[in-house]
Amino acid sequence: MQFHVDTTAYDPTTRPQRPRGDAAARLRQAHEAAAYDAWLCQQVQTSLDDPRPNVTQAAVTRDMNERKAALRAALPDSAPDTASGTASSTARGRSSSRPGAARPAAKKS
């Protein structure tokens, strides 16, 4: 097999132009992603190896709702909303005329 290469326009003093972007940034991002992956795997393994009993989603939700209610009660001007039992949007400094400010109460199941 033979190849024919046209070298009439070849200039050995010029460097070839290769659009490759910033290789250092790509490598840095790849290393950061690998480091994060290793950290996450270590965190998951630590959690799996933890001898303490698991906590149910219902218990976590109940605990977080209690914590949020305590924080809301500590806010100044936090009058409870009669419909949902939480501080109203206007009491927390939000304007009710702003789109999306009035949210329906979450359904309890």
Rank of each mutant, 00 (worst) to 15 (best):
N65I: 07
S95Q: 09
T90Q: 14
D63R: 13
A105G: 12
E32S: 06
W39E: 10
S88G: 15
D49H: 03
A58S: 10
T82Q: 04
A74V: 12
D6V: 04
E66N: 09
R18V: 08
V44P: 03
Q43E: 08
N65W: 06
A25L: 15
A91H: 13
R94V: 02
A73F: 07
R26P: 00
S95C: 03
S47K: 05
A33Q: 12
D22Y: 04
A79I: 15
A25F: 11
T82A: 07
R103F: 05
A25V: 13
Q29Y: 06
Q45R: 07
R67M: 13
N65D: 14
M1Q: 06
T14V: 13
K68P: 00
R92P: 01
A69N: 09
A73N: 11
S47Q: 08
M1A: 10
S89F: 03
L27V: 01
Q45E: 10
R67E: 13
T7A: 12
T7F: 12
H31K: 05
S47G: 12
C41M: 07
P53F: 06
T7R: 12
A106N: 06
V44G: 02
N65S: 10
R94W: 09
D22T: 06
T56A: 06
A33W: 05
A102V: 14
Q43N: 04
A69L: 14
A30Q: 10
S95P: 10
R98Q: 13
G100P: 01
L48P: 00
A83N: 02
S97A: 12
T56D: 02
N54C: 08
A70E: 12
R18L: 05
H4S: 12
D49N: 10
T61K: 08
R67A: 15
R18S: 03
R67D: 11
Y10V: 10
K107T: 11
D77V: 03
S78I: 01
T14G: 06
A74L: 15
L75D: 10
P76C: 04
P104G: 14
A25P: 07
D81A: 05
Q43D: 03
S95M: 05
T61P: 00
R94E: 06
S97K: 08
D37I: 06
P53Y: 05
A59Y: 05
A83P: 00
S96R: 05
C41T: 09
Q29G: 12
M64C: 05
T8R: 15
A23Y: 01
P53A: 12
R18H: 03
P99M: 02
A102C: 09
A106W: 05
L27T: 01
Q17P: 02
D50C: 00
A74P: 13
S97Q: 11
P12N: 08
M64P: 02
R72V: 15
A101F: 01
T61C: 02
R103W: 05
Q17R: 09
M1H: 07
D6R: 00
